[in-house]
Simulated assay, not measured.
Amino acid sequence: MFEKFKKAKNKSVSISEEEILKGPIPNHIAIIMDGNGRWAKKRALPRTAGHHEGMKVVKRVTKLASRLGVKTLTVYAFSTENWKRPEDEVNYLLRLPEEFMGTFLPELIEENVQVRIMGDKDATPAHTQKAVDKAVNETKNNTGLILNFALNYGGRAEIIDAVNHILSDSKEGNLHEKIDEEIFDQYLMSAGLQDPDLLIRTSGEIRLSNFMLWQLAYTEFWFTNVLWPDFKEQHLLEAIYAFQQRGRRFGGV
């Protein structure tokens, strides 16, 4: 069991897309994109340079995931705790959606990718909201991969928000059923999406950092020392290959 939680070795194993397609493909992959700041520091660059480079990786990974038939790709773009970072870095991070959508939106539309947002978008600056709203609206009829951005998102805040909505609906007489997992799922920000099959975290850290705490109950974890800006398509193939070797019993035998 504990083997699953060991950091992936840096030694690269060449795996082709054709080989991966012979096995089960995760329906939903979630990624904690970590290490942008450290990548920049190693190169004597500002932390923002790491975030900019990491944005390019999202593009490459999205295209590969789409080719492989992944149904949903959720990326942790900005957490509720990221507000604690220096103001200039926060401002840059919240400008990235505008730059990302501005350059990548035509390709997303062409590749039939649907953009979704999960998190407290209303607490972000107007320019951030405008950029993500445009992407969501212009891709809402696409039927391919769902690219789900966790933006100003925190797992605990999501659960508390769900509980408050349940209490409100119950008080107003709009909720008559006993609360079970299926009902609770409908109140989460990820409502309508399958729980992640595979979680990838880069940079060598082994923790969830308040990410999708409810949804990751039976997710397979894959950790790597690779910093996010250095994450290549081959690393995604390695993660999926590792996923394919595991037996998922969901508490059974």
Score class of each variant (00 low, 15 high):
residue 68 L to S: 03
residue 19 E to G: 06
residue 132 V to L: 15
residue 54 G to C: 03
residue 204 G to R: 01
residue 210 N to H: 05
residue 156 R to D: 04
residue 59 K to A: 08
residue 215 Q to P: 05
residue 33 M to F: 09
residue 51 H to L: 05
residue 167 L to T: 10
residue 245 Q to F: 04
residue 16 S to P: 08
residue 98 E to T: 12
residue 71 K to C: 04
residue 79 S to L: 06
residue 65 A to M: 00
residue 177 E to S: 12
residue 208 L to P: 03
residue 34 D to M: 07
residue 130 K to V: 11
residue 106 P to C: 09
residue 115 V to P: 01
residue 4 K to C: 14
residue 244 Q to M: 02
residue 131 A to K: 03
residue 188 L to R: 09
residue 155 G to T: 02
residue 163 V to N: 08
residue 82 N to T: 04
residue 146 I to K: 14
residue 11 K to E: 12
residue 95 R to A: 11
residue 2 F to I: 11
residue 52 H to E: 15
residue 70 V to D: 06
residue 104 F to V: 09
residue 1 M to D: 13
residue 200 I to C: 00
residue 94 L to C: 00
residue 97 P to T: 02
residue 178 K to L: 13
residue 107 E to F: 11
residue 220 E to F: 10
residue 132 V to K: 06
residue 153 Y to H: 02
residue 98 E to Q: 14
residue 102 G to C: 01
residue 104 F to C: 00
residue 164 N to I: 02
residue 65 A to V: 01
residue 224 T to S: 11
residue 90 V to A: 01
residue 77 A to K: 05
residue 190 S to K: 00
residue 227 L to W: 07
residue 46 P to F: 08
residue 178 K to C: 01
residue 160 I to L: 15
residue 190 S to P: 04
residue 226 V to M: 09
residue 183 I to F: 00
residue 73 L to C: 00
residue 59 K to W: 09
residue 85 R to L: 06
residue 184 F to H: 00
residue 251 G to H: 01
residue 233 E to P: 01
residue 56 K to Y: 02
residue 106 P to V: 02
residue 31 I to Y: 04
residue 191 A to K: 14
residue 219 T to E: 09
residue 145 L to D: 10
residue 92 Y to I: 00
residue 101 M to E: 05
residue 82 N to H: 07
residue 238 E to M: 11
residue 205 E to D: 12
residue 210 N to S: 07
residue 144 G to H: 05
residue 149 F to N: 02
residue 157 A to E: 15
residue 16 S to Y: 06
residue 64 L to D: 02
residue 69 G to S: 08
residue 3 E to F: 13
residue 156 R to S: 07
residue 194 Q to E: 15
residue 76 Y to A: 03
residue 3 E to C: 11
residue 81 E to P: 07
residue 3 E to Q: 13
residue 200 I to S: 00
residue 108 L to I: 07
residue 51 H to T: 04
residue 122 D to W: 13
residue 131 A to W: 04
residue 8 A to C: 14
residue 51 H to D: 08
residue 49 A to M: 06
residue 157 A to N: 15
residue 40 A to N: 10
residue 119 G to V: 05
residue 95 R to T: 12
residue 145 L to F: 02
residue 204 G to W: 04
residue 218 Y to V: 03
residue 167 L to V: 15
residue 89 E to I: 03
residue 27 N to F: 07
residue 14 S to I: 14
residue 109 I to M: 13
residue 193 L to P: 06
residue 92 Y to E: 03
residue 166 I to A: 02
residue 174 N to K: 15
residue 242 A to F: 13
residue 34 D to T: 06
residue 223 F to V: 03
residue 10 N to R: 13
residue 146 I to P: 05
residue 139 T to I: 09
residue 43 R to V: 06
residue 239 A to P: 09
residue 166 I to M: 07
residue 75 V to S: 07
residue 178 K to V: 15
residue 229 P to I: 02
residue 214 W to K: 06
residue 228 W to V: 06
residue 246 R to P: 01
residue 67 R to Y: 08
residue 213 L to V: 12
residue 201 R to H: 04
residue 17 E to V: 09
residue 128 T to W: 08
residue 210 N to G: 08
residue 52 H to W: 14
residue 188 L to Q: 09
residue 102 G to A: 05
